[in-house]
Nucleic acid binder design. Structure first.
Lengths: 194, 194
DNA sequence: TGCCGCATGTAATTAGTTACATGATTTC
DNA sequence: GAAATCATGTAACTAATTACATGCGGCA
């Protein structure tokens, strides 16, 4: 499971399940999601396997925290995962499955509607990534030409996220144009749309 | 579940579990994967829900086939799914998770190796999509300017697939250049690489 | 007083994968 | 006679989601 390995990677810096969840919602969020409950169960499993160890630590407020850190075994597993090469599992794109069947809707206006909503969604996602980028500009002098070593690869993933969303937005524009042409043809041939 | 809806969409043309699997490996393959066993269990569930019905039909060779087709209820569910707007669930990109932690490997050569392998993979994928495209050119006179209505939206999804892979390949080239620069800096500062 | 954020967890369910079972027909 | 393709299914397991339970401390 990849979540296993991601947690091992993140825990090169000791942390808690609660704080790890924030990393998912933040920096890794644009290519991986994990529920809080799944993080806790996976951490417990990894500790049982001796890939992680944990100790209790007091909290400033609220209950005691459980701080996890990597063991030698865990670090080995992390490296093995990376060395074994890219894992390119099949992706599932729900919205593309929907596009595939969009001819099922009564007329092209509904398809246009769908694509417009899709565009709104990706525009928001792009803005979110741009905000992350803006934060980096503020925090790191010389960014994007110079990046501290520990951020080098994370920044690369951010870059792909933006490129891919941009490609998707371009495709939506192009598709909207095509669907509009289709709609006009139908109107010309079959009278006014309802 | 989206697989439910995909099967409903595909079954506007009656078909069997066996043949549906081929559609996944073919046209839908670039954005959705499904195992044969999952297709069978989902079809059975959908029939129990009365969204599909099936009848037995003889086979030219091998055992009897079970041909599924949409019911009125199934068609309504398909439309509801599309009308409710884009489903943009969080995606999980295993290889990006790996890139995120690539600094764990001993030196930049290993990271370059990783990216080169990634490039090979996506180059193959792009070739596969190009072959699909080439088939369409042969089969459809006027493609890509004119597309029969039932292929219009499927062709759109194909188009996004190619754009996204192209964006990913561009990103890999750019990333390789950046990692190489990083490697040279390390060499200049810390002696020859091992 | 009641809500928000902190913090950890369990239980139930759904979705998806892997492995296995069965048997016919065609092709080499 | 062996391997590939046709064809359907079940069982066991793993991954992920949703719902629920608990309780502290600070703030309005």
């Amino acid at each position: 499971m990849a979540l296993d390995h991601i947690l091992l990677g993140l825990l090169r810096e000791p942390s808690t399940g609660y704080d790890l969840k924030k990393l998912f919602d933040g920096s890794l969020g644009h290519f991986w999601a994990a529920e809080q409950s799944q993080i806790y169960t996976t951490l417990a499993k990894l500790e049982k396997d001796k890939s992680l160890r944990s100790r209790r630590a007091p909290s400033l407020r609220g209950p005691q925290r459980r701080v996890y850190s990597l063991t030698t075994k865990g670090r080995r597993e992390l490296r093995d995962w990376l060395r074994q090469g890219p894992e390119v599992g099949d992706q599932r794109f729900h919205y593309l499955a929907q596009v595939f069947f969009l001819d099922e809707l009564e007329n092209t206006d509904k398809a246009i509607d769908f694509l417009v909503r899709l565009r709104e969604h990706f525009a928001l996602r792009l803005e979110a990534l741009d905000r992350v980028d803006a934060e980096l500009v503020e925090e790191i002098p010389g960014y994007p030409d110079t990046v501290p070593p520990d951020l080098f690869f994370p920044v690369l993933t951010l870059s792909l996220g933006r490129k891919r969303i941009q490609a998707t937005l371009d495709w939506i524009e192009e598709s909207l144009a095509r669907v509009r042409t289709l709609g006009e043809q139908a109107t010309d041939a079959g009278g006014p749309p309802k």
